[in-house]
Design a protein around this nucleic acid. Structure first.
Length: 572
RNA sequence: CGGGACGUAGCGUAGCUUGGUAGCGCGUCUGAAUGGGGUUCAGAAGGUCGUGAGUUCAAAUCUCACCGUCCCGACCA
């Protein structure tokens, strides 16, 4: 490819809209342009990288035995009503109407479609297992698109769905995808590691996310160096808080004391009361499927809403408003507590199981209780782990201190079970002639997000550093003079032809630009190998080999094609 | 949805407080010089100052509404 024949609109300065390095570089290197918030056009360099990532994904999915299909992006709402997600996933659904006023929606994912397909086509255990996948544009009405391709309204995803006859066999399918994902991300040249994750609105038994460590990620991963435990913070547990809960026997009677204007944990911890946060009970009122519930945590702990949602198994969970709380408890937020509460279910974190000498709101504005023994004074409906793990807490498995790392989620695999196959009737007859729902798994990779994650993980001050496997072009030939018929250009064109013939993606920078401009651009766009051809070195029969991020070496003209082939082969 | 910031040429920005000819850098075009790290000089094109309404003799500037972009939040009472 000739630089002047393709389209690489590089920018010296990054547009003000871009905040993080990868987003700036996507724009500056001319890979994408924004149409509007959350919607981007891929330019030639961006498309080339996209296709390479897709190719890797296809090869590994095929290798793992999955079959490529292509499902409609436009979907009828009926199948979503069947699965129950028309309601539970409602906020992310783009809905539209046709001229007959019938409603449609743009698919944010395809469990409903594939399960409907399988329901119609698969009827015997002899037809299983199957794993179908596709690479397709998804649509999600994100609350807030951000960071370029990281969170967009429209994005490209690889989604796969496995169907098995038994739970054990489904586990094998799951493991195959786990292995395939590990290979995919390795081949894309990024470090991504699996962590235990919350299944969220997809549902299912358990799941793993593949995470790329990056400070700009939107997830916190809790991990242990001691035993390799790793989990999304939405799921992670630990041996408990850093400071022990007060559990010493304390027979002091429950007592009220006035706390006018004190409505926060911090305020109660300060003058004049000086009740340490860890000796307070944090009482949160939530609305779960329309019913008020009370959630208890230690004052210094943070509620993990994902854990709460998972434990309750309810679809709609949100904090209750003061207007909703007052009639039920008789006080406003800041003076709430669980002591003596019988009209609402009370969910308490196990950290508080034997807590004594605690303080909490008395359900009377401006009044708190002290000397609370949770076991004695609070009627707990259910103990559920709902606290957020903090760095430094002991690993529940091996006791080593846990660490927390920000990360980008690039893949997510789910052990679904029979949630969808039952509702959408993907049933088969087993060996004994008995009808059973297929056991499912589903497996996603954000292709466009992966592309950006690669940049986020692999760049420097000069630009992108593409791994050879996904680079738009592996080699950039940089003639320092473009005089037609001149020795520099003649050699450049010869090398271009030879490298292309060798099956290497090569671009020839034939622009009439000064060397500095060409060097800067090739580094910004991030081609892994640059071959500089100038009169000075050519006089010595040499050209310059400059790996992106490496050092420049002189190579004999007759050796350069072989050297480049070696480098490319070594990277593959 | 709540809070905040911003919207001036393709990109980055000044001007706005105190209303009066819209400026700069990069990029683009023309010419010349230069030719190994975003070179230099000369000239040029390019603007409904986000949109609409209002105040005013006069609005990029003040007021209101709307639209858009970005950031934070949307659990911690």
């Amino acid at each position: 490819m000739l630089w002047t024949h393709t389209f690489i609109p590089t920018l010296k300065e990054s547009p003000a809209e871009a905040e993080i390095a990868s987003h700036k570089l996507l724009l500056r290197a001319g890979l994408i342009r924004k149409l509007t918030g959350g919607l981007y056009t891929f330019l030639p360099m961006g498309v080339r990288v996209l296709r390479k990532v897709e190719k890797i994904v296809r090869e590994e999915m095929n290798r793992a035995g999955a079959l490529e299909v292509l499902m409609p992006a436009l979907q009828p709402p009926e199948i979503w009503e069947k699965s129950g997600r028309y309601t539970t996933a409602s906020e992310v659904l783009f809905k539209l109407r046709d001229r007959a006023r019938k409603e449609w929606l743009l698919g944010p994912t395809h469990e409903e479609v594939i399960t409907t397909l399988v329901a119609g086509e698969i009827s015997s255990y002899r037809q299983l297992p199957r794993n179908f996948y596709q690479i397709q544009t998804k649509f999600r009405d994100e609350i807030r698109p951000r960071f370029g391709l990281m969170r967009a309204k429209e994005f490209i995803m690889k989604d796969a769905y496995s169907f098995d006859t038994t739970d054990e066999k489904a586990q094998v399918s799951y493991q195959k995808m786990h292995d395939a994902y590990t290979r995919i991300f390795a081949r894309c040249g990024i470090k991504a590691f699996p962590v235990e994750a919350d299944t969220g609105v997809i549902g299912g038994k358990f799941s793993h996310e593949f995470m790329v460590p990056a400070e700009t990620g939107e997830n916190d991963v809790v991990y242990c160096d001691g035993c390799r435990y790793a989990a999304n913070i939405e799921k992670a547990g630990s041996a408990g808080p850093l400071t022990a809960t007060h559990t010493a026997p304390d027979d002091a009677a429950l007592e009220k004391f006035p706390t006018p204007g004190v409505v926060t944990i911090d305020a109660l911890a300060g003058a004049p009361h000086f009740v340490p946060a860890e000796r307070q009970l944090k009482s949160l009122v939530y609305l779960a499927d329309g019913k008020l519930i009370l959630v208890l945590l230690r004052g210094d702990d943070q509620l993990n809403e994902a854990k709460l949602v998972a434990a309750l198994g309810t679809a709609q969970v949100r904090p209750a408003t003061p207007e909703e709380i007052f009639p039920a408890l008789g006080a406003h937020p800041g003076s709430l507590g669980a002591v003596g509460v019988k009209n609402l279910p009370v969910y308490a974190d196990p950290t508080l199981a034997n807590a004594t000498a605690m303080t909490t709101g008395a359900n009377e504005d401006g009044v708190h209780y002290c000397n609370i023994s949770v076991a004695r004074d609070v009627q707990v409906t259910q103990w559920i782990d709902v606290r957020t793990v903090r760095a430094g807490e002991a690993c529940a498995k091996c006791g080593q201190p846990l660490k927390i790392q920000r990360a980008i989620e690039v893949g997510h695999i789910f052990k679904l079970g029979t949630k969808y196959s039952e509702k959408l009737e993907a049933l088969f007859l087993d060996e004994t002639g008995k009808q059973q729902p297929a056991v499912m798994g589903c497996y996603g990779i954000g292709i466009t997000r992966t592309l950006q994650a690669i940049i986020e993980q692999s760049h420097d001050k000069d630009g992108i550093i593409w791994p050879v496997s996904v680079a738009p072009y592996a080699v950039c030939l940089t003639p320092l003079s473009i005089t037609p018929g001149g020795p520099v250009m003649v050699l450049a064109e010869k090398l271009h032809a030879e490298l292309e013939a060798a099956g290497i993606d090569v671009i020839l920078d034939d622009r009439d630009e000064r060397p500095g401009v060409k060097f800067k651009d090739s580094e910004l766009v991030g081609f892994p190998i640059r071959v500089g051809i100038g009169e000075k070195s050519l006089a010595k029969g040499e050209v310059e080999l400059k790996p992106r991020g490496g050092t420049l070496t002189a190579v004999k003209v007759e050796d350069i094609v072989a050297r480049v082939r070696e480098l490319v082969a070594a990277a593959a």
